[in-house]
């Protein structure tokens, strides 16, 4: 469980975060969305005890990060495209991390295989591609087998296969009861992955809701020869209808029902499309509009 309560952070005269309140629940993947400079990274740093809040609280499993007794066994973090000393091999990097995470050598080899770096274990991280560094960062986060994962732009630098891999990994982590909070601006990828969405803009939370509730039920766009007759017929069958004069926007009916109704009232249909509200549309409405 991750929670922030009225979290604020000020740098000099600049308010980077204002009263940020949200939660990420176990068993769910929470997407933390915002444009660059919106306060995503600052929030994650406050959660991880890397910076101190000006006011408010950032809690993991009910405690501040500094109060966690064995932090790397409770929380795994992926930050800044994977930090590692360039002179260390992938395995060497994890072996320096292992004492901190309470992990042994066998666990190091296990996570290297798990993230697909088994063959690159003896290569120095300075020679890693961005995608490999990101995989190493995920391995570092998983080393202590933590139930909570916090990831800052984890898909950066991954190729499409890598993104699919990460999606599978995070979904199965959540399905096993883990808590996943990840920030991203790759909205298309998030839509396939997250259960809950938190949108932040200018240091303030603009929205926090389950994705299913946001995108809602799909609506139909219908064009036909006689909109008046269609309107009355759809309404009679319990549809909720809006119109812009050239098309009807129907909620509460399926495409099959709408087609059957139109046939029954003998009105030719020119267009019948199912529209879903995309996360991207919501995001730009809330985050990009100033």
């Amino acid at each position: 469980m991750i929670e922030t309560r009225r979290l604020s952070k000020t740098y000099g005269a600049v308010a980077a975060l204002r009263d940020v309140t949200f939660a990420a629940a176990p068993g769910r993947v929470t997407g933390f969305l915002g444009l660059n400079g919106s306060g995503k990274t600052t929030t994650l740093r406050l959660l991880l005890g890397l910076a101190r809040p000006t006011s408010g609280e950032a809690l993991i499993n009910g405690r501040r990060y500094r109060e966690l007794r064995r932090p790397l066994r409770e929380v795994g973090a992926v930050l800044e495209q994977g930090v590692a000393h360039p002179g260390l091999t992938g395995r060497g990097h994890l072996r320096t991390q292992a004492p901190l995470a309470g992990a042994n050598g066998a666990r190091v080899d296990q996570v290297l295989e798990y993230v697909g770096l088994g063959d690159a274990a003896r290569t120095r991280t300075g020679e890693y591609s961005l995608g490999m560094r990101q995989r190493l960062a995920v391995a570092t986060a998983l080393l202590g087998e933590p139930p909570v994962l916090i990831l800052d732009e984890p898909a950066n630098g991954l190729d499409p296969a890598g993104v699919a891999w990460l999606r599978g990994l995070l979904r199965s982590h959540a399905e096993a009861g883990g808590t996943v909070l990840l920030s991203s601006h790759l909205l298309g990828e998030l839509e396939l992955l997250v259960d809950d969405v938190v949108i932040i803009a200018d240091g303030e939370v603009r929205l926090a809701a389950p994705l299913a509730q946001l995108t809602g039920s799909p609506r139909l766009r219908v064009r036909g020869a006689d909109l008046r007759t269609l309107y009355d017929a759809f309404t009679g069958y319990g549809g909720y209808i809006e119109t812009d004069g050239s098309a009807l926007f129907v909620e509460g009916l399926t495409a099959e029902q709408a087609g059957d109704i139109a046939l029954a009232v003998q009105v030719p249909i020119y267009e019948l499309t199912v529209e879903t509200v995309s996360l991207e549309a919501i995001f730009f409405e809330l985050a990009a509009a100033r």
Partner: peptide, 18 residues
């Protein structure tokens, strides 16, 4: 100093936040 140069100081701070 290398820890700050290569940002790995963050990993130490995550492992030992005190």
């Amino acid at each position: 100093g290398q820890h700050y140069q290569h940002r790995t100081a963050m990993l130490l701070m995550l492992g030992e936040p005190r």
